[in-house]
């Protein structure tokens, strides 16, 4: 399959602090990548960097983001604007917050459409009703004539998904699209997102801290810790055969119906401001060794399409990887 998004050695920060450090991954056409990690690990910053949104104070320091054949980091503002919406869509965490509270939903749809192509209001409206139907939003007319506050959170999120799909972008970036929703509505929204791929062949990068959602939706999983991807691989591989201690603890932390309190990750994540040598997880890791304090971040391959940044547990001798990180 063709590569749609290639992120290469990307480092991103705010002000003087680097948040995302040296990240590389690829999303192929029609593929769903789940990025998991605890709050504050840089997931959302990564998403903002890919969008290159102005006004978010995110500064790209190093690396490049290839989208198709264009390097997003070197696009002009107008090129970026045209890219967003038409080829890149976003779903935000807070349902409804990405909608203007004082405007009817239909105006926001039409405005998004008209920003990218010349289309008459009525024609746009017809297309939008069709799109909503396609996404199982039956009473489209009523929804379009409502204000965001008149709809439920789940409904707003589905509207936001439809709004992101107005121009049928090739890639959807979803920033914790389910975390603010009820569990019952979560399932519905996850189904909806999966449907995007079925119907439109959309690739999706889904940021979440919900392992259940990732297990349901993703083809590949990237586990992020302190601004780096510490383990990456096929979903089944990661869930069945996790190698990085962080991934293991994350999986252990999922609550089960056995009445036991799940075991969390001990300690606190490091502050991004502190300089730290060696593996950034070593302070919280049960398997930490002396070498962990010294080694630079490097990745080792475990299997085909599965790599980790942990030396002691990878089972493979440590070496500066020549293996392509992005595959």
């Amino acid at each position: 399959m063709e590569d749609l998004l290639q992120v290469k050695n990307l480092s991103v920060g705010y002000g003087g602090v680097d948040i995302v450090k040296d990240i590389s991954f690829t999303i192929k056409k029609g593929e769903i990548l789940g990025i998991v990690g605890e709050s504050g690990c840089g997931k959302s910053t990564l998403l903002k960097a890919i969008l290159q949104l102005t006004g978010t104070d995110v500064i790209t320091r190093k690396g490049c983001i290839l989208f198709g054949k264009t390097d997003i980091t070197s696009c002009s503002k107008e090129e970026l604007r045209q890219l967003r919406g038409t080829r890149l869509g976003v779903i935000f965490q807070n349902p409804g917050a990405s909608l203007n509270p004082l405007r009817k939903i239909k105006h926001q749809f039409v405005e998004a459409m008209q920003s990218h192509k010349k289309i008459h209001k009525k024609e746009a409206y017809k297309k939008i009703v069709g799109l909503l139907e396609c996404l199982n939003l039956q009473d489209g007319e009523r929804i379009l004539n409502s204000y965001p506050f008149q709809l439920s959170g789940g409904m707003n999120q589905r509207v936001a998904i439809a709004l992101a799909m107005v121009m049928e972008p090739e890639l959807i970036l979803a920033d914790e699209p389910t975390s603010a929703l009820d569990v019952t509505v979560q399932a519905q929204v996850v189904e909806e997102i999966l449907k995007l791929r079925q119907v439109f062949g959309t690739s999706i990068m889904m940021i979440t801290h919900n392992m259940g959602v990732v297990a349901k939706i993703a083809d590949k999983i990237g586990v992020m810790y302190a601004g780096r991807i510490v383990e990456y691989g096929e979903k089944k591989e990661i869930l069945r055969n996790p190698t990085h201690p962080y991934t293991k603890t994350l999986l252990q932390a999922i609550p089960k119906m056995d009445g036991k309190v799940p075991k969390g990750v001990r300690g606190e994540p490091l502050s991004f401001k502190d300089m730290h040598r060696g593996c950034s997880f070593s302070t919280r890791c049960d398997y930490s060794q002396d070498t962990c304090q010294k080694k630079e971040y490097s990745i080792t391959s475990v299997k085909k399409n599965h790599w980790t940044s942990c030396i002691p547990l990878s089972g493979v001798s440590s070496h500066e990887s020549t293996y392509s990180r992005s595959s």
Binding site: L53, R81, G89, V166
Partner: peptide
């Protein structure tokens, strides 16, 4: 301008 819906509209590529 700092409200989320502005970020949302920008993310949709709505003209400034």
């Amino acid at each position: 301008l700092n409200k989320e819906y502005v970020v949302g509209a920008r993310a949709r590529g709505v003209k400034e």
